[in-house]
């Protein structure tokens, strides 16, 4: 164990997080672990959801935003409906991921981040998600094994008539793009 030097602590991090919908109540977390015990992905995480909350409160910004844990959440909200203090860990994970991407903490190897960004790109293009475009673009990004892993599913779906080949589009696509531009946080590089 290493000494936690006080200069590693970013005291403003907690306030940064409490500004998000998911961060509003984390000051009252009683560290009971209900979130982790309810989480089907907790076993895959380097830090459990409870610990992530404590790390946010302690100001361990870098450790939290570079963790694998925040990308494991499947957004099932089991923690959120059970939290005895009304905290919404699912929404907290959204906030942490968003900050990790904006501020450049997120590793380019993080599949989920790549996928989510690809999703946003497709959405930006059509206003809707065209599954073949999404799967295709994602499959060819970065990791070549990904393509191999996904191929059987894609072929199967195609064969079963589960892939609509012509993208469906939003007519007023400008509206969608404007919405995205207006509400998407600005990218800030980590110092």
């Amino acid at each position: 164990m290493e000494l936690l030097h006080e200069d590693q602590v970013e005291r403003s991090f907690l306030e940064e997080i409490t500004a998000y919908p998911g961060g509003q109540k984390i000051r009252s977390c009683q560290q009971c672990g209900t979130c982790s015990g309810s989480c089907q992905m907790a076993g895959e995480m380097d830090y459990t959801p409870r610990k992530i909350i404590e790390m946010v409160r302690a100001g361990l910004k870098r450790e939290v935003l570079t963790s694998k844990a925040i990308w494991q959440c499947v957004s099932c909200y089991a923690c959120t409906v059970r939290c005895p203090r009304g905290i919404m860990p699912t929404e907290l994970m959204y906030a942490l991921r968003s900050i990790a991407i904006q501020q450049g903490y997120c590793s380019s190897q993080e599949d989920s981040a790549v996928f989510y960004n690809t999703f946003c790109d497709v959405l930006h293009k059509y206003g809707r998600i065209h599954e073949p475009t999404l799967m295709g673009t994602f499959a060819f990004k970065g990791n070549p094994f990904r393509l191999m892993g996904m191929a059987p599913l894609g072929v199967g779906m195609l064969f079963k008539g589960k892939l609509g080949l012509i993208p469906s589009r939003v007519a007023n696509i400008d509206e969608v793009r404007k919405l995205m531009a207006l509400t998407r946080p600005k990218e800030v590089k980590a110092s």
Partner: peptide, 26 residues
């Protein structure tokens, strides 16, 4: 030290799901 959050059963055996918060392990 962790809330016994959920009791599940598989193949006739009960399991208590929890986080051992002192270890930080699920």
């Amino acid at each position: 030290r962790g809330k016994g959050t959920e009791v599940i059963q598989r193949a006739g055996e009960l399991f208590v799901r929890t986080e051992d918060t002192l270890l930080g392990k699920y």
